[in-house]
Design a protein around this nucleic acid. Sequence first.
DNA 1: AACCGGTGATTCAAATTCGAACAACCCGTG
DNA 2: CACGGGTTGTTCGAATTTGAATCACCGGTT
Lengths: 154, 154
Amino acid sequence: MAEPRWLDEREMRAWNGFLAASALVNRRLDQQLKDEAGLSHPQYEILVRLAAAPGRELRMTELANGLLNSKSGLTYQVTQMEKAGLVRRRSCPSDVRGVFAVLTDAGSAKLEEAAPGHVAAVREVLVDVLTPEQLDALAEGLGEVGRRLRGQGA
Amino acid sequence: MAEPRWLDEREMRAWNGFLAASALVNRRLDQQLKDEAGLSHPQYEILVRLAAAPGRELRMTELANGLLNSKSGLTYQVTQMEKAGLVRRRSCPSDVRGVFAVLTDAGSAKLEEAAPGHVAAVREVLVDVLTPEQLDALAEGLGEVGRRLRGQGA
DNA sequence: AACCGGTGATTCAAATTCGAACAACCCGTG
DNA sequence: CACGGGTTGTTCGAATTTGAATCACCGGTT
């Protein structure tokens, strides 16, 4: 542990690039969503996941595990979105503790309104900047990174 | 704008992978740094940049532009780190408004203490997970992504 | 020398985040 | 049926982030 393997030139460039791109892309998309649709990036993610879920509803824990923040963070965001009418809470019949977050029609409409601009922004800042080979490398490499972190963390 | 080019399978995988990895890696490293060295990730970044700067000092604005948060966010972090003795403020002789953030000996020592564990974590979650080809693709692809966002944003 | 647009850093309030603590509840076991 | 460990979602307080507003100042112009 006293003398670790430092990062060589190539590794350093990859790491710095990842770090910078991560911060810049996230900030840019946050801003784009807020300007065009009045949504934060976390909120947009919630809408996407609910829209893709069967019955357009998910348990709070599933939603939080998907990819977000902590459970308490989700509680906060869902409360905000409920005030805005984008989602609704429904208690689970088979488990009194359980709560479903349900996508409302307004939430669905908001998503359809926001999606085109968001996709265009994703293309502009990331997807259309990369070559097909780089896209594959990202998908495979970072896919594996994500899988490991999910596995360990759980 | 009505019907944009949606993401195809490959693009979607790359995008989702990037998004997930970005969130998971950042969270993991934040935690690792906090546990092992009592530093937040932004604070660690500040130490690194100051250590690499000539004279171990940088103007606040340069530091903020480097890659971080907003200027006000930097003011906050530098204040915290100053309380902890890791950095010191020095006013610029040629411009009364200007402020240098200077790395102290304690800050330098803290960085040397934290770096090995941090590098090991970076290897574990990202660098050692990727093949050399994937590392190159990351460096080139995301490097370009970062360059464009910096250029536009400025 | 007074003026003026622009710059550097801080302050402020508001929003968001997290982790720990909490209360209520599920279920398999004795 | 009562018990105890593990789950579920929320609440709470503390830390952090952001953008707008602010204050003080630089430098070139008149």
